[in-house]
Structures are given as structure tokens and as C-alpha cells.
């Protein structure tokens, strides 16, 4: 049986507390991974390992954080993600809400988009 939303959140929270050294209270659904919780790029590798273990899932490289798109000259021009790049991001990240990012798709802001809620949605998409 698939775990409930609360169970998913609890496990995601535990993974983030362990990986980022933050307090449980800081990990709320709307908290951003980079801005609010201070995640750095290496932390995403840590988080991926922990989520895989906690949920018994496999997370392919660049699926949770599509660094390959953001560093691909084909999809980035003058520091902004192109329309093709945005389409690719949406295709790859159906679990994330990219509405805000689309308005001003500056690559350096991307890391600040993902929220705890997005992480939970991602896990749920893998479990379903």
C-alpha cells in the first residue's frame, strides 16, 4: 500500500534533517531547499541517497535536480533558460511548480525554486 501524504512528508523531513543539519521545525512544505534550508549542490547527492533508502526507490542522475539542462548551452542563453529549455524542464520535472521561474528564468535562481513540497511530490510520483 502506498504511504499516505503525511508518511511521505515525515520521511522526507527526516532525510532533510539528517542531510542538511536543520531543525525539524524548519522543514515545512513551503520551505525552499536552497534559500530556506541552505542546501548546496553536494547535499542533493546526500538527499538522493537518503530518499532512495527511506522509500526503496531509485532516483536516476539529474532527475531530481536537472543540472544537465541548466549547464547545456542549447537550453541556456545569456544566463536564462530558453523556451526549449523550459519545455524540457517541465517534461523532466512534472512534480515541480515552475510557474514563478518561468516569469524570469534566470539559471542562478533555479536552485531556489524547489520546495520541500516538490520533494514530497517527486517521491509520490516515484511511488505511484
Amino acid at each position: 500500500m502506498a504511504p499516505s501524504d503525511d508518511e511521505v512528508f515525515e520521511k522526507v523531513r527526516e532525510a532533510l534533517v539528517d542531510a542538511l543539519g536543520v531543525d525539524e521545525e524548519e522543514v515545512v512544505p513551503e520551505a525552499t531547499m536552497v534559500g530556506d534550508l541552505g542546501a548546496e549542490s553536494i547535499d542533493f547527492l546526500d538527499i538522493v541517497f537518503r530518499l532512495e533508502k527511506a522509500f526503496d526507490i531509485t532516483i536516476p542522475r539529474d532527475e531530481l535536480f536537472p543540472e544537465d539542462i541548466l549547464t547545456n548551452a542549447e537550453y541556456v542563453q545569456d544566463g536564462k533558460v530558453t523556451a526549449e529549455g523550459l519545455a524540457e524542464l517541465k517534461k523532466r520535472m512534472p512534480f515541480a511548480d515552475l510557474t514563478k521561474f518561468e516569469a524570469n528564468p534566470v539559471v542562478t535562481d533555479f536552485g531556489n525554486l524547489l520546495t520541500v513540497n516538490d520533494m514530497c511530490s517527486y517521491v509520490k510520483s516515484k511511488l505511484s
Binding site: I42, L45, D46, F49, E52, K53, R61
Partner: peptide, 10 residues
């Protein structure tokens, strides 16, 4: 070794 893959190890 807990886990190892092409981009890193835990």
C-alpha cells in the same frame, strides 16, 4: 560502503 554510483559514494 552504503551506496556508490557514477557521481559519488556514501
Amino acid at each position: 560502503m552504503n551506496d556508490i554510483r557514477e557521481n559519488g559514494a556514501y
